[in-house]
Design a binder for these strands. Structure first.
Lengths: 226, 226
DNA sequence: TCAAAAGTGTTTACTATACACCCATGT
DNA sequence: ACATGGGTGTATAGTAAACACTTTTGA
């Protein structure tokens, strides 16, 4: 310890960019900050890293507390460590993003915090550097979705190719040709077709698919060209 | 301050993956740790984030101290925050990678620390999780080099296309077809040909090129297919 | 019968890759 | 003369993108 003690210690927080998907649009969960500074302003869900707790676990804990879900897809975005990013005290924050199914989360839990789902296209002003965190999280999500099929993280267990395509269109903010998208996705051989159709979107009915529950295949092929 | 004080504070460090290029191979600068724990074991250059100092600046400071260079290309890799990653005390570390020209750095400065350049293909065991930091830094470097021309960061101000190709071969650990590589790079229109030839590598002599000093163009085109 | 999505097939354009080939020149 | 890297051109293959067309069925 003797070699470390001359150095200062800092508060270390995690801030979670919690993303869901609903009605063709990505949504972000924000809540009105409950204490000063910036009390009442829109903020990411966050919490402080405790002793003996990894930042990954701190992020999981925050997620559990705010939406009541565990075993969620989650990834580190970056560290934000400007000394004056929080006007009240120096807090170094590690940003994470999480993908949750909006229908599965604990709504009571969310309501309790006064939290609100915002469509990604019309986000409000956020406190501190939370806006930047969201920006960088969305870039990371695109990178992830470009190399690995993001499906079961944001959709239901079974989904149609239309639903998957709309999700990708929301993530990449552009349209994909229905035929080409179908061929590309199916060529990856990571989906399994069920003997069940969704009749809500078309008269003909579209087959449901599920993700093959093999190892979450990585780097199999590019999905979206950059 | 009243809302924060109930939370613990932590040591926050930066660890720098300092990469250079020499004789067709990427090299990593390591030094024998000067204090316990793990005194004498090979370690990345690191330092603690001070009060009022951003982590970016802490990383710059470490770089200045260890190789005597400023204004170096540098990027955050990730936060490493397992509570027991450092057996002596809890230290949350932010990993950065830096690209330096090996001929330009202050050799006295480096020697003073007992530091040593290791070719990337034969790295020694490192302390703690430094090996993982290096791994992730190399992935980040590949991503960066795949979208943006990495040249002046690791080579001299002027370089031949052979030198640039060898650099890319070192970064991606695979060979590139000389003709195709040349065409691809020149099509990016980010290099300027000088009226000067390097005669050391071939009888015919190869033109030197420099990076056009426009805005460091981003996302112009993929350089390396993934 | 029409609209709307499902699903399949075809055509075109582009680009990565492989590789042939001439050039210049020191040894 | 020949070996070596410099530099250019071309042929092939694979893939992204555009789009035509057929299927199904409720309204």
């Amino acid at each position: 310890m003797k070699h470390y003690t001359k150095h200062p210690k800092h508060f270390v927080a995690v801030d979670c960019v919690i993303l869901g998907y609903d009605e063709g649009e990505l949504c972000l969960l924000l809540y009105p900050r409950g204490f000063e500074p910036s009390k009442g302003a829109w903020s990411l869900m966050g919490g402080f890293v405790q002793d003996g707790e990894s930042s990954d676990n701190a992020a999981k804990r925050v997620l559990k507390q705010t939406i009541g879900l565990e075993d969620i897809f989650m990834q580190q975005v970056a560290a934000f460590a400007n000394p004056d990013r929080d006007p009240e005290a120096r807090v170094i924050s590690l940003a994470y993003y999480a993908l949750v199914r909006m229908d599965e989360h604990d709504k009571a839990c969310v309501r309790e915090n006064g939290a609100h789902w915002w469509p990604i296209s019309e986000l409000p002003e956020m406190i501190f550097d939370h806006g930047k965190m969201v920006e960088q999280a969305l870039v990371k999500l695109q990178q992830e979705a470009g190399y690995r099929l993001i499906g079961k993280e944001l959709l239901a267990d079974k989904f149609t190719l239309l639903q998957l395509r709309k999700l990708y269109e929301a993530i990449f903010q552009r349209e994909f040709d229905p035929g080409n998208f179908r061929k590309k996705i199916l060529s990856l051989d990571v989906l399994e077709r069920l003997n069940e159709k969704d009749l809500s979107e078309s008269k003909k009915g579209a087959f449901y698919y599920t993700c093959k529950n093999e190892v979450t295949e990585r780097g199999l092929d590019r999905i979206v060209k950059v």
